[in-house]
C-alpha cells in the first residue's frame, strides 16, 4: 500500500516537472493571485479591483485580490518578488517601491532583477495645494511669500522618501526656498493637517481630495504631474513653470522574474483592455482617477531612468541612503 502510494506520488511529481514548460500554452488554467500593495478602501485598491474584474472576464480566470499593505508598498511587492514565476502570482506596484525605497533601506528584493513590470495601468496625479482661505492665489505669490519669510513656511508630504516629498524638496532646492518638511503618515493625515492649518502647503494626489477642491476648501497652486488636470484646467504644470522634472509615478502590475513571456503578454493584453474599457473608465472618473496603459518594457525603462535620476539627488534632498 505504502509503496504504491509513493509510486503514485512520484509519478505526479514527475508529470508536473515534465508538463511544466507547456503550461504557458493554456495559461491561465487556474485562478491568479493578485496582491494589492495598499490597504483595502484606498485609491490603488479601488482602481485595482475595478480593473481586475474586467481582466477576469478577458482571461476567463478569476483574479483573487489580496491586500498586503505596509512599509510604503514594499511589503506587497516583496511578496510578489518571492513568489514562483509561473504567472499565477502578480501584484500592483508603485514607483517608489522599486525605484526609490530600495536605495534608502534594505528590501528583500532586487527591484529590476526579481520583478518584471507587466504594464503600467494608471498614473497617480499630484499637485501642490493650499487651504482655500489662504492668501496665496497663484504659485508665484506663494513662492514670493516663502522667500520673504524664510524658515516660517512648512510643507507636508505623506512620508519621507515618497515622490511627494522628493519632488517638493527638489522644487524648494532649485528655487532656493527655506521651508520645513513635515512628513505625515499617509495622505489622509497630511490632508487633515492642511485643512486644520497646521502646515501651509502639501503635495498630495488630487483624487483623494477632489471633493475638497470642488468645495473650495483646498486650492491647487501647481500641478506637479506632466499634464494639466481636467478638474482644475487653469492651474499650470511645473514644466510650464520652467522646471526640468516632474512627479511621475504609475500604478503598475508586476510579476516575479521568470514568468513565461507568453503569460506576461496575456496579462498585459488583458489589462490593456481593462484600462480602456468604458465601464472601468467611467467608474474611475467618478473618483477622479484616469487609467492609462503603458507597455511593461517601456515603463521598466522609465523606472530605471527615474531611479538613477532620483538616486543621485537623494543626499542633497536630505534623505538617508542605505549604508
Amino acid at each position: 500500500m505504502g509503496r504504491k502510494l509513493l509510486a503514485v506520488m512520484l509519478a505526479v511529481v514527475l508529470a508536473v516537472a515534465i508538463a511544466g514548460p507547456s503550461l504557458a500554452d493554456n495559461y491561465p488554467s487556474k485562478p491568479i493571485k493578485f496582491i494589492i500593495n495598499f490597504s483595502a478602501g484606498g485609491t490603488t485598491d479601488t482602481a485595482a479591483r475595478l480593473m481586475s474584474s474586467k481582466a477576469t472576464e478577458i482571461l476567463q480566470q478569476a483574479l483573487i485580490c489580496m491586500n498586503k499593505p505596509g512599509a510604503g508598498g514594499t511589503l506587497g511587492v516583496s511578496e510578489v518578488a518571492r513568489a514562483k514565476g509561473n504567472g499565477y502570482t502578480i501584484g500592483t506596484c508603485n514607483m517608489p517601491a522599486v525605484a526609490i525605497i530600495p536605495l534608502t533601506r534594505k528590501v528583500p528584493y532586487e527591484p529590476f532583477k526579481d520583478l518584471v513590470q507587466v504594464c503600467a495601468v494608471m498614473p497617480y496625479e499630484y499637485a501642490l495645494m493650499v487651504r482655500g482661505d489662504s492668501p496665496w492665489k497663484t504659485w508665484e505669490e506663494f513662492v514670493e511669500y516663502v522667500k520673504k519669510n524664510p524658515g516660517k513656511v512648512t510643507y507636508g508630504s505623506p512620508g519621507t522618501g515618497t515622490t511627494n516629498h522628493l519632488v517638493t524638496a527638489r522644487i524648494g532646492k532649485e528655487l532656493g526656498l527655506s521651508w520645513n518638511h513635515v512628513p505625515f503618515q499617509g495622505g489622509v493625515k497630511e490632508t487633515a493637517a492642511l485643512l486644520g492649518g497646521h502646515v501651509d502647503i502639501i503635495n498630495n494626489t488630487t483624487a483623494s481630495v477632489a471633493s475638497s477642491i470642488k468645495a473650495g476648501k483646498i486650492r491647487v497652486l501647481l500641478v506637479t504631474s506632466e499634464e494639466r488636470f481636467g478638474m482644475v484646467p487653469d492651474v499650470p504644470t511645473m514644466k510650464e513653470k520652467g522646471f526640468k522634472f516632474s512627479q511621475i509615478s504609475y500604478m503598475s502590475v508586476v510579476a516575479p522574474a521568470g514568468t513565461p513571456p507568453a503569460a506576461l503578454e496575456k496579462l498585459s493584453a488583458a489589462f490593456q483592455v481593462a484600462c480602456s474599457d468604458k465601464g472601468v473608465i467611467k467608474s474611475c472618473a467618478q473618483l477622479d482617477l484616469h487609467p492609462k496603459f503603458i507597455p511593461g518594457k517601456q515603463y521598466q525603462a522609465l523606472l530605471e531612468k527615474l531611479s538613477a535620476e532620483w538616486g543621485a539627488l537623494l543626499p542633497e534632498l536630505g534623505v538617508k541612503i542605505k549604508k
Binding site: 506520488m9 505526479v12 511529481v13 508536473v16 483573487i64 489580496m66
Partner: peptide, 15 residues
C-alpha cells in the same frame, strides 16, 4: 473569496 493558505507542499501535489 479570501482563501486560506493552501500550503506549498499541497500546491505541488495539486498541480
Amino acid at each position: 473569496g479570501a482563501p486560506l493558505p493552501v500550503g506549498t507542499l499541497v500546491e505541488t501535489f495539486l498541480e
